[in-house]
Simulated assay, not measured.
Amino acid sequence: MSDAAADPKRKLSAEEVREAPGLDDWRHLASGIRARFRTGDFATGLALVDRIGAAAEEADHHPDITLTYPAVVVTLASHDVGGITSRDLDLARLVSGFAAEAGVGADTSGLVELEAALDSTAPQHLGDFYAALLGGEVGESRDWVEATDQVPSLWFQSPPGPDDEPGAELPPTNPEQRWHLDVWVPHDEGERRLQAVLDAGGTLVSDAEAPSYWVVADADGNRSCICTRLGR
């Protein structure tokens, strides 16, 4: 890693994260880098969480951790810079080492992060309502509500108009639908997830912005986006 990339206060690009060594267990999604370790039982997972917690306290850099009976999911991000830094990569490598020492394998297949989006002609006017409804906080730009430990982030966007770029390259917004799902998958999972959706009866609405995202629709015409960090 270059001296600039090693700066613990510098936000790394998606490409720098993807090319960093020692991160085979991790994938970059919407809010951070994420790994899932298949522990197989609760006691093994709890022991792994204890080791991660101790290392996080020592580094003064704290991940989000989900412990379930068969797995531990860890998400890392540097909230002070709004992205990924060398601090996250260093802790990620430590966590992978702990898992390897415990004989626990990582499973990158199926890693996913969900965001909900609402089309609105006045997106900045909706934040206070949905923050109150969901028990969250409005983001600085006021067109989104920050995720909490119980609900995913929620954001609002203006529907693309005929003169918008790059929206002009995309089909017009479905007038009967205002909510859509943004499903974030790893950079190496996007095309496979798209094919799975098509095989399940979905249709491809647009690939104009691929591989950053594909717009897909269900049999009733409801649209969602399959999103990756590529090209961002």
Results as ranks from 00 to 15, higher is better:
residue 5 A to M: 11
residue 5 A to N: 09
residue 11 K to S: 14
residue 13 S to R: 01
residue 17 V to N: 06
residue 22 G to I: 10
residue 22 G to R: 07
residue 24 D to K: 15
residue 24 D to T: 13
residue 27 R to I: 07
residue 27 R to E: 08
residue 31 S to T: 10
residue 32 G to N: 04
residue 33 I to A: 02
residue 34 R to T: 15
residue 35 A to D: 03
residue 39 T to L: 03
residue 42 F to H: 10
residue 45 G to R: 02
residue 47 A to V: 11
residue 49 V to T: 14
residue 50 D to P: 01
residue 51 R to N: 05
residue 53 G to N: 09
residue 54 A to E: 15
residue 57 E to Y: 01
residue 57 E to T: 14
residue 58 E to R: 11
residue 66 T to S: 05
residue 68 T to P: 01
residue 71 A to E: 13
residue 73 V to Y: 00
residue 78 S to E: 12
residue 80 D to W: 05
residue 81 V to I: 13
residue 84 I to C: 04
residue 88 D to C: 14
residue 89 L to D: 00
residue 95 V to N: 03
residue 97 G to M: 07
residue 101 E to V: 07
residue 103 G to D: 05
residue 103 G to M: 05
residue 105 G to E: 14
residue 109 S to W: 06
residue 110 G to C: 05
residue 111 L to F: 02
residue 113 E to P: 04
residue 119 D to M: 05
residue 133 L to P: 03
residue 137 E to K: 15
residue 138 V to K: 09
residue 140 E to P: 10
residue 140 E to C: 02
residue 144 W to A: 06
residue 146 E to Y: 11
residue 149 D to N: 14
residue 149 D to L: 14
residue 150 Q to I: 15
residue 150 Q to S: 15
residue 154 L to T: 13
residue 159 P to Q: 10
residue 162 P to S: 09
residue 163 D to I: 04
residue 164 D to L: 08
residue 171 P to N: 08
residue 173 T to C: 10
residue 174 N to F: 00
residue 175 P to K: 11
residue 177 Q to H: 13
residue 178 R to K: 14
residue 180 H to D: 06
residue 185 V to G: 11
residue 193 R to V: 15
residue 202 G to L: 11
residue 207 D to H: 02
residue 208 A to M: 04
residue 209 E to K: 08
residue 209 E to P: 00
residue 210 A to H: 03
residue 210 A to P: 05
residue 211 P to Q: 07
residue 211 P to I: 09
residue 219 A to S: 14
residue 220 D to T: 10
residue 221 G to R: 03
residue 224 S to F: 13
residue 225 C to N: 02
residue 226 I to W: 00
residue 226 I to D: 02
residue 230 L to P: 00
